[in-house]
Simulated assay, not measured.
Amino acid sequence: MSVLIVIPARYASHRYPGKPLVPLKGANGHSRTLIQRSWEAAMAVENVDRVVVATDDSRIRTEAESFGAEVVMTSAACANGTERCAEAHARIGGGYEIVVNLQGDAPLTPTWFVSDLVEGLHTDQDAEIATPVLRCDGRALATLKDDRADGRVGGTTAVFDRFKRALYFSKEVVPYTATVYAPEAETPVFHHVGVYAYRATSLAKYPSWPHGPLERLEGLEQLRFLENGRYVLCVEVEARGRLFWELNNPQDVNRIESMMAEMGIE
């Protein structure tokens, strides 16, 4: 199957304006912008036909082109990254079977997460979109709970049925558990990793579907699929010793830099 990776990036983030241009210091002390690190993560994925950055901002375009990325300019009216991916795919003329949304705030995304999503759509022909879920250990769960207790919107959690069909995604920690887990212990909570692989036919229809109340309340674009009765496949992935976190808030910069230092990512 032909695969296109789109990295949607906007400057006017409500929680963190200018986020794609934030510098992140690696283990060697050298800094590269968030958008460059996200592009490098995308370029490392095997069996991908093309990688593009999709933005509506000339500052992001200039930065992306400075390190060799292909850029597709999209409308400022895009409500979220999925709509931006749909527009980017259309603007380059379409033709790809699978479009991957590798969001521009997840530079620590392991390459096999993306490969597993593409394989998931290949295996399950009924699924219209696939997205990764990572079982939280005690350390990750404690971080999610601490963020919520301090009023920060941190990671997203997911619940799904025994066939791995998504039931719900939330910025709250679901399912509820009062248990205190050891740092390395498995927990019943799954961190939703903000990467999506869409069938191009379904992605093209997405912008025309109505926005439901859950999408509005949670601010989670994938809920539009669920609210319109679409099959979202949750693909359980393994960390393989890698630490993972998205850059959602300014406080996450130090957290991600610490993780890169711990993993030796330059």
Rank of each mutant, 00 (worst) to 15 (best):
D105E: 13
V133T: 09
S115C: 04
V71I: 05
L121T: 06
C136M: 14
R84T: 15
L102M: 14
N101L: 11
E46R: 15
V100Y: 05
V51M: 05
S58I: 08
A86P: 11
I92M: 12
S58H: 08
Y96C: 06
R91G: 00
D124K: 00
E63V: 08
E70R: 10
V53M: 02
T74S: 11
D56W: 07
E87F: 11
E70T: 14
M43H: 02
D57Q: 07
G93S: 08
G94T: 06
R135P: 04
R50I: 06
H89A: 14
G95F: 06
V71P: 05
E63A: 14
V45C: 09
I92D: 04
E128G: 14
I98C: 06
T131H: 00
D124G: 01
V133M: 09
D57V: 03
A76Y: 04
Q125E: 10
V72P: 09
A54R: 02
T131R: 00
A88P: 06
V71L: 10
E63D: 14
V52D: 03
A76F: 03
I129P: 00
E128L: 13
R91C: 00
D126R: 12
P107I: 13
I92R: 01
V48F: 10
D126T: 12
L108S: 09
I92V: 10
V100F: 05
A64M: 07
N101A: 13
V45K: 08
G120P: 06
R59V: 05
C136G: 03
T131C: 10
F113K: 01
E87P: 04
E87V: 11
R50P: 07
R84A: 14
T123W: 00
A77Q: 12
T123C: 00
A130L: 03
W112G: 05
F67K: 08
S75G: 09
E70A: 13
V52F: 06
S66F: 03
D49E: 12
V133Q: 01
D49P: 01
C85A: 10
V133Y: 01
S58F: 02
V52H: 04
P107Q: 11
R59H: 13
V71M: 08
R135S: 05
N80Q: 11
E97G: 12
N80A: 10
F113A: 12
M73F: 10
D49W: 02
D116A: 15
Q125M: 00
G68N: 04
A64Y: 02
C78E: 07
A76H: 13
L108R: 06
A86S: 15
G81C: 09
A76S: 15
F113H: 13
Y96M: 03
C78R: 13
G81I: 08
S115V: 05
D56C: 13
A79N: 08
Y96W: 09
D57S: 12
V71A: 09
Q103D: 14
D116S: 15
V51Q: 03
V99L: 02
C85Y: 01
V100S: 07
G120F: 02
V100P: 02
V51P: 09
E128F: 03
